[in-house]
Amino acid sequence: MYYNPYPYFVYANHYPPWATSNHTTPSPLPSHLAMPTNQPTTSPFPPVNTHKLQSSAKQVQTIMQQARLLTDKIDGSEQFAHDLMNAAQLSNKTEVDKLIASTGISIKFDTKYTPDNLRVLFIENGCCGLTLILNW
C-alpha cells in the first residue's frame, strides 16, 4: 500500500467554497499585494561603456600573435614538439617553461599539463587572457 506523507492536496486554482460563494468575479488585489505595472525607469545595470571591451579585444590580438609563435614552433620543428611533450609528460615544469619561452614569447604565461594535453594560459596586464590547449 502506498503511504502519502502529505495528506492535503494543494491545487493552484482551488479555493475553499466559502471564499468564492459570494463573488462571481475576482476582486482586484489590494495595491500593496499587486505586482507593479509600471516599468522601472532606471536599469539595475550601469550604462553600457564599450571602451574596456574594445581595449580587451585589442590586447587579445597581441596575445594571439604570441600564441602563434608557440604553435608555429611546434608545427615547424618535430624535435621541439618531442622535447616539449617529453618534458610535460615527465612533469618537468621548468623545462616546459624554458622551451616555451625559447619560442620568443614576451608576455607572461602559465603552463599546466596532464597526460593528455598541455594548457598554456597567456595573461596580459590583468585585462584579458587566452588559454591554448594542445592535445596529444
Rank of each mutant, 00 (worst) to 15 (best):
K58I: 06
Y11C: 05
F109T: 05
Q65E: 09
P36G: 06
T62N: 10
L90N: 13
T114V: 04
L121V: 07
T103K: 02
V60T: 08
K93M: 06
Q54I: 06
D97I: 03
Q61G: 10
T42Q: 14
T114Q: 04
L33W: 08
M64R: 10
Q79W: 00
A19F: 15
G76Q: 05
S77R: 03
F9T: 15
I133V: 13
N38Q: 15
T24A: 06
A101R: 14
V120A: 00
N135T: 09
D72Y: 01
T41Y: 03
A12T: 13
T37N: 09
S106Q: 09
P28F: 01
A19Q: 15
A81S: 11
H14P: 00
P7M: 07
D72R: 04
E78S: 15
L118F: 00
L29F: 03
I123V: 10
V10F: 15
Q65C: 02
K73C: 03
Y2W: 06
C127M: 09
T41S: 14
D110C: 00
K52I: 13
L29I: 00
F45T: 11
M85L: 08
I133C: 02
G126A: 03
L99M: 02
I107M: 10
F80H: 02
Y11A: 10
Y3M: 09
L53P: 00
P17S: 10
Y2E: 14
G126R: 04
T114R: 05
P36K: 08
V120K: 00
H82M: 09
K93L: 04
T114G: 01
Q59H: 04
K52P: 00
Q59N: 07
T111R: 02
